[in-house]
C-alpha cells in the first residue's frame, strides 16, 4: 500500500510536451497495473463461460470442430492433400481468429469499459491491454488444436519455429497499438465498429488464410494480395516458422514497416485524444 501522498496535477494542456508526458504516464501506469489487466481478462473469459459445463474448453472445442469441418471440405474443393492442407489451415485459422477478434474487439475496448472509465481515474491503456490479454488467453486455448493436428498428421516444425517468437512479440505490440487507436476512434465515431467488421470480413477472403499463395501462383493473382497486404505479412512472420518455412525477409520488412506506421499514427492520436475520451462515452 503506498500511502505516501503523491502530488498530482491535472491541467488543461494544449502543449504537445505536456500531453506527451500524460500519455506516457498513462502507458507506464498500465504496465505497472499488469496484475489488474491479467485478472480483468481472466474474469472476462471466466464470465463468458460461467455456468457452462465445459467452460473455456469450448474455445478449444469449437475451433477444433470448425477446423475439422472446413479442412476436409476445402481440401477437396482446392484439390489439396488433407495431410498438407489441414495443418496449414489449422494454423492459419487459429492465427486469423486472433487477429480478427482482436481488431473487432479493439473498436469497443473503451465503450465497453465506460462504467469503469466514468467512475474512477484509471490509465486508459488498461482497457486496451485488457483486450490484448484476453485475446492472447483465447489464443492459448486454441493452440491446443494446432498441437493436436500436428501430432495427428506428424507435422514436425523444426528448430526454426522459434523465430516465431519475435514475430509474436511484434503482434502483441501491434495489438496494443490497434486497441488504443481503434478504441479511441470507436468511442468517438460509433460507426467505426461495423465498418471495421466489414473490412475484416473482406480481409479474410483477400488474405491467404484458407488458400495458400502457392495455389494461385500460376494465375498471377496472388502477387497483389500478398505483396502489399499487411495482414499477410503479419500472418506470415508467425505462420511461416510453424510450417517449417525459412525466414521470409520480404514479409518481415513489410510487417515492420506497417507496424512502425501503426505506432506512429497511434502515438499521435493517443497523445492528442486521450484527455477527451471520457467525454465521448
Amino acid at each position: 500500500m503506498s500511502d505516501i501522498p503523491k502530488r498530482q496535477v491535472i491541467a488543461a494542456s494544449h502543449s504537445w510536451s505536456e500531453r506527451l508526458r500524460l500519455a506516457w504516464a498513462d502507458l507506464a501506469d498500465t504496465a505497472r497495473l499488469w496484475p489488474l489487466v491479467w485478472t480483468l481478462s481472466l474474469f472476462d473469459i471466466r464470465l463468458r463461460y460461467r455456468g457452462s459445463l465445459l467452460g473455456p474448453l469450448w474455445l478449444t472445442l469449437s475451433t477444433a470442430v470448425m477446423v475439422g469441418a472446413i479442412g476436409v471440405l476445402y481440401a477437396r474443393l482446392f484439390h489439396q492433400d488433407v495431410t498438407d492442407y489441414l495443418p496449414f489451415l489449422t494454423i492459419s485459422l487459429v492465427l486469423w481468429t486472433f487477429i480478427s477478434t482482436m481488431v473487432s474487439e479493439a473498436t469497443t475496448c473503451f465503450t465497453q469499459a465506460d462504467a469503469m472509465i466514468r467512475s474512477m481515474r484509471m490509465p486508459h491503456g488498461v482497457h486496451a491491454a485488457r483486450v490484448v490479454m484476453r485475446n492472447t488467453l483465447v489464443l492459448g486455448h486454441n493452440v491446443v488444436v494446432v498441437a493436436v493436428v500436428f501430432a495427428l498428421f506428424g507435422t514436425k516444425p523444426g528448430l526454426d519455429c522459434f523465430t516465431l517468437l519475435p514475430g509474436f512479440l511484434l503482434w502483441l505490440a501491434d495489438a496494443m497499438a490497434a486497441s488504443l487507436l481503434l478504441g479511441l476512434f470507436g468511442a468517438r465515431f460509433r460507426d467505426i465498429p461495423p465498418i471495421v467488421a466489414s473490412v475484416m470480413q473482406i480481409a479474410f477472403y483477400v488474405t491467404p488464410i484458407m488458400w495458400n499463395p502457392a495455389m494461385l501462383a500460376h494465375r498471377g493473382l496472388a502477387k497483389a494480395f500478398v505483396e502489399l497486404n499487411p495482414f499477410y505479412a503479419l500472418l506470415e512472420i508467425v505462420r511461416g516458422p510453424l510450417l517449417g518455412l525459412p525466414i521470409n525477409p520480404g514479409a518481415w520488412q513489410l510487417a515492420v514497416l506497417y507496424s512502425l506506421g501503426l505506432f506512429l499514427i497511434t502515438g499521435l492520436v493517443f497523445v492528442r485524444a486521450r484527455p477527451r475520451l471520457p467525454y465521448w462515452l
Binding site: R7, I10, S119
Partner: peptide
C-alpha cells in the same frame, strides 16, 4: 475523470 478544458486540479 474529466480532464478540464481550462484551469487545473492539484
Amino acid at each position: 475523470i474529466y480532464e478540464p478544458v481550462g484551469g487545473s486540479i492539484t
